[in-house]
Design a protein around this nucleic acid. Structure first.
Lengths: 127, 127
DNA sequence: TTCGTATTTAAGCAAACGCTAAAATATAAA
DNA sequence: TTTATATTTTAGCGTTTGCTTAAATACGAA
């Protein structure tokens, strides 16, 4: 007769061993998962994803250009860029009074494959 | 002498043609980008990413098991699963009174490569 | 220095998010 | 049918998000 360490579920056939195995495996990758989630939540915003797409294409763009292309407030764009920079996805290069943003080589392996799937559209077919 | 269609920026050397080119390219992939952003924002939550990780590993888990493994409220887990289901990332299979969730084959090409990068941890080295 | 431009920062606010607690459903067993 | 279990749904609440506006910085040119 299997007992249950379960907090909420009362089922008899709860496989405690299995659950603990899952917990352990989860624990092992927890830091990586947290880091990944952080990057994904950055890219999970449509405006920021557009910015990443544009930077991947153009290699570098200043805040002004991005605001023009996206047709939005410079301040709003700047705030998004700050988040991306804090997240280590882009880096800033100041030339005179204009700041150019470029994708960091570091995160390309994660972000660029995602953007690649965009050129080959995510239609219901590919989904 | 180049003029500026720019809303906010006043610079003389704004390359209007270039900006419009960017806008057009963006417009072309806009739907795909929106769809991708939707998936990424789902995966960008740590709890949901854990759920996706567990489902990818175990193939199927019921709400109860997930709640046990994650050590959180069944209701909270259920609400996350609903979002994942609405986003087409997982699907529900009801057997008796328990509901098993499985990853949808559709989204695996997007989600699973991401999770793969977790087994090979995202250390500062790989970043 | 003063003026103008590019960018960032701060404050405020509405909307979205994620959790808890409680009630509602659905199904199985007694 | 009544009772118990698994899950979902609803309502409420505090937190986070993303935008706007306005002020603050940074830098170049006159």
């Amino acid at each position: 007769m299997t007992t249950t360490t379960a907090s909420s579920c009362v089922r008899v056939f709860a496989d405690t061993a299995h659950i603990e195995q899952c917990q352990q495996r989860l624990l092992a990758v927890e830091p990586s998962l947290a880091a990944l989630a952080a990057v994904l939540s950055l890219a999970g915003n449509e405006v920021r994803l557009k910015i990443l797409f544009l930077l991947a294409q153009e290699q570098q763009l200043c805040v002004c250009d991005l605001a023009d292309v996206l047709q939005m407030n410079v301040s709003a764009v700047s705030q998004h860029l700050r988040k991306l920079k804090d997240g280590g996805v882009v880096q800033a290069l100041k030339v005179g009074q204009t700041v150019f943003y470029t994708p960091t080589t570091a995160l390309r392996p994660i972000v660029e494959p995602l953007l690649a799937s965009v050129s080959t559209p995510l239609t219901t077919a590919t989904l």
